[in-house]
Amino acid sequence: MKINLRVWLKIPDAEAATVKNTLRRRMGYEAVLADLGKERLWSIEVDDDVRDPMDLARRLARELVNENKESYIATVDTIEFEEGYVPVKVGLHIEDGEAVSALNRLRNRLGFDMVRGVERSVVWKLALKSERPEKAAEEIAERLLINPHKDFYEIMT
């Protein structure tokens, strides 16, 4: 069973603003990119016999989300994104030290014995004015959002 936590900032996201400005002002996407948002995505593999996965998701969120500045949505085994943008998931194809640390922290220090694995990624939400938005999203991912020598991307529509 996989618990997914989509996490985003309540306060203005300066990184998303910088990426949007770079794409629009420096890389020629002014007419294509209408808006850009960013979320962190925690995908947490847990034992299948967990009785109340949403309660577990809330307890995991207490450790992985800072609710003073962040909001989140928890789902089990599925991820759904709102319409109006192309979600591009970016993660590491080399070992992700932060995910490894999170797994160790959850299991060995905080007692979440049911947690089997942790994956961490960023979802860039691209609002695109294009007849082929997924193609444009792929191009943006390859030109800016990833370095292919350590990152992968996936269009999540």
Binding site: A14, E15, T18, V19, T22, R26, L144, L145, N147, D151
Partner: peptide, 16 residues
């Protein structure tokens, strides 16, 4: 540069 936003060096590399 640019607070290492996105990843270190990525944003500055696109400057004119």
């Amino acid at each position: 540069s640019y607070q290492d936003r996105l990843r270190a060096g990525a944003i500055a590399s696109k400057e004119p």
